[in-house]
């Protein structure tokens, strides 16, 4: 049942993302399945009706995908770069349109505030403003989880908030560690290296171990695993 609902949700989201010109010229956006699953579980724990879960999950993921799409703007061929900028704007417009159609004005506001927070932390991270590794990790958590944390607050399921921040921050840092090891650019590890010098890798492994332990020890982890079968 859970898998089926999740599959339908993912398909609905994919349909929303379809635009003939964008599909022809740029890659279809990646859907972060772990994030979607976490969001779905949070909305389910808020005891929302299935159709409302779907509605809010699609709205939040549209924002997430809009922001992620803008992260991809880089030195690519001109047309692709231009359409990548516009795709992000288009997905943002869709989130507003979806919620406006349903008169969800307060949730539009909730997500708008989350977008502000995400972009503040993105600039902070991009500019290497963090003075400690913990500050930097906090920014990564805010970038990855603000949308979901604000959603938790909105639907009064705040016991998921801290877990979402830790889990999504951990997932992003682990992803970028792999990138950094493959010689790809990583904003997180560029900052980490400038903060810690040669100790960065050792510090990362300590962080990874501690973060994983904390996540597994969290009562939310047990709840989430029981609901979805998802495991770290």
């Amino acid at each position: 049942m859970y898998n089926n609902d999740f599959k339908i949700l993912k398909e609905r989201l994919q349909v929303k993302l379809q635009h003939p010109v964008l599909m022809q010229h740029i890659d279809m956006p990646d859907i972060d399945e772990e994030k979607l699953l976490l969001l779905y579980s949070i909305l389910k724990s808020a005891k929302l009706h299935t159709k409302h879960i779907e509605h809010y999950a699609v709205a939040v993921m549209l924002v997430q995908i809009a922001l992620d799409t803008h992260e991809k703007v880089s030195e690519m061929n001109v047309k692709k770069r231009q359409l990548t900028v516009l795709a992000g704007d288009y997905y943002s417009g869709l989130y507003y349109h979806l919620l406006a159609d349903n008169h969800d004005i307060s949730f539009i506001r909730t997500l708008a505030k989350a977008i502000e927070e995400v972009n503040e932390h993105k600039i902070y991270l991009h500019q290497h403003k963090a003075s400690t590794v913990n500050e930097m990790i906090y920014s990564v958590q805010m970038i990855e989880a603000s949308l979901i944390m604000k959603t938790c607050q909105h639907f009064q399921v705040t016991d998921w908030e801290e877990y979402a921040a830790s889990f999504l921050g951990y997932a992003r840092i682990a992803r970028e560690y792999k990138q950094a090891c493959n010689g790809e650019s990583s904003v997180i590890f560029a900052a980490w290296k400038s903060l810690s010098g040669e100790k960065w890798e050792q510090e990362y492994h300590v962080y990874k171990q501690n973060a994983a332990m904390e996540l597994i020890d969290s009562p939310i982890y047990a709840q989430w695993t029981a609901m979805t079968g998802h495991q770290l």
Partner: peptide, 14 residues
């Protein structure tokens, strides 16, 4: 520039 645009868009909705 991308972050600023997204930030202003969110401010407009707020």
């Amino acid at each position: 520039a991308m972050y600023t645009g997204d930030y202003l868009f969110a401010k407009s909705l707020e």
